[in-house]
């Protein structure tokens, strides 16, 4: 724990670690300062200007970029700040496709949260000149889609791609009102170097980046990703007996809240119609459906004839610890051989 600093925000005295931004210090102490472009996992950049505060003796500045200092007196709300923030939000909303009911981010949307807090003047918005929001939706990636009509240009996706994924496949492009997030050559995202880790999709505060088929799960269960040896902790969502979502466990000691394309989007094999659903026994050269009783009695009768080293087991690195324990115990204790191995070497 490094040095603690005492400061006052809106009359409340709080303590924060040296180096913390005013915004983070406030949030950690239960004081809300509206913010949009700041994200706890990423470098702060101060471009949305929503988290403006007044600091005694200084000009208004953004709280996400200002580190706490001893004895600082911060005000998060004043007539001037509120007005600046309000107009700022109104401008943003004017350039946002406000189709909340049909938006996958409805009720998780940061813009909705901000609008609720800041409050907006509908009359002023209607006096403004509304732009045509007619960017085509980019659904070239099989797992997520990009809707630039909803993008608020907070740059969280850009920083995520740079700082978390290290891929840097997206960036701000063009200038002024034409500014948008794009890839090299302004092509569809599928033609970029995007590796579909979905880290930006999971951090996008609005409906600009959403999964292709977003289905709300009925419930979620914390488990472990079944793919590589990293063993990321995932929250798997299910609905109607099918897996419908997979998200990172935020404080996972393994992944730190990140996932890759397979863990996030690759679990639908479980729902595949090609899954085996009954035992199959080869009869007259064909594999035909059979009951568990038939299969188990056939296997136990047959295996009884091969005890010792003429029997072997290939176990699986995809099965659980418990499965493997029982399998090797069976091989050794029942079949009397140490002929067991798995694909550790492959």
């Amino acid at each position: 724990m490094s040095e603690l600093i005492t400061l006052t925000i809106d009359g409340v005295e709080i303590k924060a670690e040296k180096g913390t931004s005013i915004l983070r210090a406030a949030l950690e102490n239960g004081i809300y300062i509206p913010h949009l472009c700041d994200h706890q996992d990423l470098t702060s950049v101060g471009i949305c200007r929503v988290c403006l505060v007044e600091i005694e003796g200084r000009r208004p500045t953004v709280s996400c970029m200002t580190p706490v200092e001893e004895g600082m007196v911060v005000t998060t709300s004043s007539e001037e700040l509120d007005m600046t923030r309000k107009v700022n939000m109104e401008l943003l909303i004017l350039h946002h496709d406000y189709d909340c009911q049909n938006c996958a981010k409805n009720s998780y949307c940061k813009l909705q949260e901000l609008t609720r807090y800041v409050g907006i003047d509908e009359e002023r918005i209607s006096a403004m000149r509304a732009p045509a929001l007619d960017f085509p939706i980019d659904d070239s990636n099989p797992y997520y889609q990009r809707d630039m009509n909803k993008c608020v240009l907070c740059g969280i996706c850009v920083r995520t791609c740079e700082e978390i994924q290290g891929d840097e496949c997206i960036d701000f492009a063009f200038r002024g009102i034409e500014t948008r997030i794009s890839v090299l050559g302004d092509k569809p995202i599928i033609d970029s170097t995007c590796v579909t880790c979905g880290e930006c999709v999971s951090r996008c505060p609005v409906g600009a980046l959403v999964p292709q088929k977003a289905i709300e799960p009925t419930y979620e269960v914390e488990t472990v990703c079944p793919f590589c040896g990293c063993g990321c902790n995932i929250l798997v969502g299910a609905r109607g007996g099918k897996l419908v979502s997979s998200t990172a466990v935020e404080d996972s000691p393994v992944s730190g809240g990140s996932l890759c394309v397979k863990g996030r989007y690759g679990l639908s094999f479980v729902n595949s119609p090609e899954r085996l659903t009954t035992p199959l026994i080869r009869r007259d050269g064909e594999l035909v459906e059979a009951s568990w009783e038939e299969a188990i009695s056939l296997i136990s009768e047959k295996l009884g004839q091969y005890k010792g080293d003429q029997f072997a087991t290939i176990a699986s690195a995809k099965c659980t610890v418990e499965d493997n324990y029982v399998l090797q115990k069976f091989t050794r204790a029942v079949m009397g051989t140490n002929n067991i191995d798995h694909c550790a070497r492959l």
Partner: peptide, 22 residues
């Protein structure tokens, strides 16, 4: 060593190997 599969480590730990028990 970065293990390729989700539970290679567990399968090895459990003695799904010809020369060792758990």
């Amino acid at each position: 060593p970065l293990r390729g599969q989700n539970n290679v480590q567990g399968a090895c730990d459990m003695g799904s190997l010809p020369n060792v028990y758990t």
